[in-house]
């Protein structure tokens, strides 16, 4: 379910260059003596889901507000849809959707009235009914349109917030922690919706403190204490965190230390060789590329007469990746 037809999509304009829809150049934001954002630079191509990940208080909301035009940078420059936020026209704003961190609609209005209110402030005409219904169906609230917003559950309120963000069919969507405080099933659904929107050409800038959600993004930026530690694809992040990809070699017998030394010397092994389990039947290797390393490892086992049970790529959870990245950053000072 999407909010626009393919014909409409063709009309979506990108005010930016073809490659970049959002750009930040050494952006800083200070609140008095407190530095919320510290010289952050990045570029985001259109049609992607960009995840801004970081712990609470890391500056994610400040960053999204800088991009949406709520805050003015203390230093540096921001460009969204090819314009500085200070140059946003009404037409630019109509191309942007924004979902704040908290539910900000009117508790005393029904679901439908709330959506209608947002449609009005975006200047949508009287023929808006079909659009509102589409938006509600998209977030599976079609059956609740006459309920007062205050009677909705937290999850339903978040869905209503998302529907309100999408009601004007924006091409660039800022979502500030859209999945915060909702159950895992609904979170999955949200990410499903985001992917649908991405697949139809929309660009999504999503902040989250759930590190695991990085896996759903096309690009991920890791923000810690106002600084952008790294920005990459999820795979790229993994690579950066551990110095390569991870392959687990499970053997029938415990390999002694001499084998480990030989493994460290193999050309495709680029990092540590460790034993992650107590029995010592698994050897974990950091390799340059798992797909090429695994056949070579198989050959090495045959040469060395090592009886193997399995060779597989290990995909560590993003929590571990995040911790590794932060530690690495700390180590680098």
């Amino acid at each position: 379910m999407v909010l626009s037809t393919s014909a409409e999509q063709n009309q979506i304009q990108s005010g930016a260059t073809n490659d970049v829809i959002i750009e930040a150049k050494a952006v800083s934001k200070h609140f008095g003596s407190e530095i919320a954002i510290n010289e952050v630079s990045f570029q985001i191509p259109p049609g992607k889901i960009f995840g801004f990940i970081g712990p609470s208080g890391s500056g994610k909301t400040t960053m999204i507000r800088l991009l949406a035009g709520i805050y003015k940078p203390t230093a540096g420059d921001v460009s969204v849809l090819g314009l500085r936020p200070s140059q946003f026209t009404r037409q630019t704003r109509e191309r942007i959707g924004y979902m704040p961190q908290l539910f900000v609609l009117y508790p005393g209005l029904t679901v439908w009235e709330n959506l209608s209110f947002v449609a009005s402030i975006y200047g949508m005409g009287l023929q808006r009914g079909a659009r509102l219904k589409q938006a509600l169906d998209f977030v599976e609230l079609g059956g609740h349109k006459n309920k007062l917003a205050r009677t909705l559950s937290g999850g339903m309120q978040r869905r209503l917030g998302l529907a309100a963000t999408l009601v004007n069919d924006p091409e660039l969507i800022f979502l500030d922690e859209p999945t915060a405080g909702i159950d895992p099933v609904l979170r999955q659904k949200f990410w499903g919706h985001f992917r649908e929107l991405r697949d139809k050409g929309r660009t999504l800038f999503v902040t989250t403190q759930y590190v695991g959600e990085a896996a759903y993004c096309d690009l991920v930026g890791v923000l810690v204490q106002g600084r952008l530690l790294v920005m990459d694809t999820p795979t790229g992040l993994r690579h950066r965190a551990f110095g390569g990809e991870i392959v687990d070699l499970r053997t029938k017998e415990r390999l002694d230390r001499s084998y480990l030394e030989i493994l460290r010397g193999l050309p495709f092994v680029t990092g540590k060789v460790t034993r992650p389990d107590e029995q010592g039947t698994i050897v974990r290797l950091i390799v340059d590329e798992a797909s090429t390393a695994m056949p070579a490892l198989l050959d090495w086992c045959k040469e060395q007469n090592v009886a193997i049970e399995s060779i597989e790529e290990h995909l560590p959870p993003f929590d571990d990746i995040f911790v590794a990245l932060v530690k690495k950053e700390a180590a680098h000072g």
Partner: peptide
């Protein structure tokens, strides 16, 4: 309520 934040981003 927070709607002012929404207004500031909207047209």
């Amino acid at each position: 309520v927070g709607t002012m934040e929404l207004f500031r981003v909207s047209p």
